[in-house]
């Protein structure tokens, strides 16, 4: 995205002071509304069960001095729950995320290079077909995929969740192709005159220049893996293979149910990494969305 214009641009001077202030106030309200659910999740996770389920609006447990010990109690209670093993689910989720993100980024980058830089016959129709697959809802293919993975002997393992990523994803291919199209072709041609093959151009020119775009793909695919629910729910049968999102559901519905304060602590643990990543890579997120939005 281009550098942002100063926030008090021409547009702002045109609108009256009153509208500007009311717009600002509205934004403050919006921000509070949007952040309140997350804040209340954290607040609830700090309290003992009976205080969580009371009508008070307190932010800290009563007495406030028990906050630290209550945090330790709630979070270690969730982390060490004997039935729902979050440490194992965290590891599984990370395994899937790492393998899947690596595969998705690499393969999508290569396929996008083919679409962007090599004018092979059938490229146009195949690219159109690729875009069309974005409209196919996952539920439509989940049953057959399950049967297929069963034939491959993958049910009962993490493979269904990461192997397909090594064959690229339509949206990421589209995104990277758009980015490559914006890179000057002269660079390739110069390299080609120097005797570089496609392989050389890809690794020495395209990949270094498209690092921001690759980061965007990696980030969004990571978030996708972290959030995915339906595919793990269908393909993972073995409790030791569960991912965090699935663990959360299991924690919610385990026999005897779960008190709200612990459920919120579990929720906080699942959400926290995403929030941290967001703060570290906010710009990449924003850039990635803007790039993927088909503004052209």
């Amino acid at each position: 995205m281009a550098a942002e214009p100063p926030s008090t641009g021409l547009a702002a001077t045109r609108s009256s002071r009153a509208t500007r202030w009311s717009a600002h106030a509205l934004l403050v309200v919006m921000a509070i509304l949007w952040l309140a659910p997350l804040a209340w999740m954290v607040v609830t996770s700090l309290k003992p069960a009976d205080q969580a389920a009371s009508a008070s609006l307190r932010l800290l447990p009563d007495p406030a001095s028990s906050t630290v010990s209550q945090i330790v109690e709630n979070y270690s209670g969730v982390w060490n729950d004997e039935a729902v093993q979050f440490p194992i689910y965290l590891r599984n989720t990370l395994i899937v995320a790492i393998l899947s993100v690596a595969g998705m980024t690499l393969s999508s980058a290569m396929v996008a290079y083919g679409f962007a830089r090599i004018p092979f016959r059938g490229r146009g129709p195949f690219f159109a077909l690729t875009l069309a697959t974005m409209m196919i809802p996952f539920p439509v293919i989940m049953g057959p995929l399950y049967v297929l993975f069963g034939h491959l002997g993958w049910i009962g393992s993490l493979k269904p969740l990461w192997v397909p990523a090594w064959f690229g994803g339509a949206f990421n291919i589209f995104l990277l192709r758009q980015f490559y199209m914006g890179l000057p072709k002269e660079l390739d041609e110069a390299a080609r005159l120097d005797g570089c093959s496609h392989w050389g151009i890809f690794w020495r020119i395209i990949v270094p220049l498209s690092r921001p775009a690759l980061a965007v793909v990696a980030l969004f695919h990571f978030i996708y893996v972290w959030n995915d629910f339906l595919a793990p729910m269908i393909f993972l049968t073995h409790r030791d293979d569960f991912t965090l999102a699935l663990g959360l559901q299991m924690y919610q519905s385990k026999s005897g149910n779960t008190p709200w304060n612990l459920l919120m602590a579990a929720g906080t643990m699942v959400v926290a990494p995403v929030v941290v990543l967001f703060f570290l890579a906010q710009r990449s997120f924003v850039r990635g969305i803007a790039a993927g939005g088909g503004r052209e």
Binding site: A12, A23, L26, L27, V28, L248, F285
Partner: peptide, 25 residues
């Protein structure tokens, strides 16, 4: 509202953050 506001980055971040939260959570 965001387009012409002061502190756009902050408000945009506040509105954007929940979209990354896993739906299960």
């Amino acid at each position: 509202l965001l387009n012409r506001s002061r502190g756009r980055d902050f408000f945009q971040a506040a509105i954007f953050l929940p979209s990354l939260v896993p739906l299960a959570a």
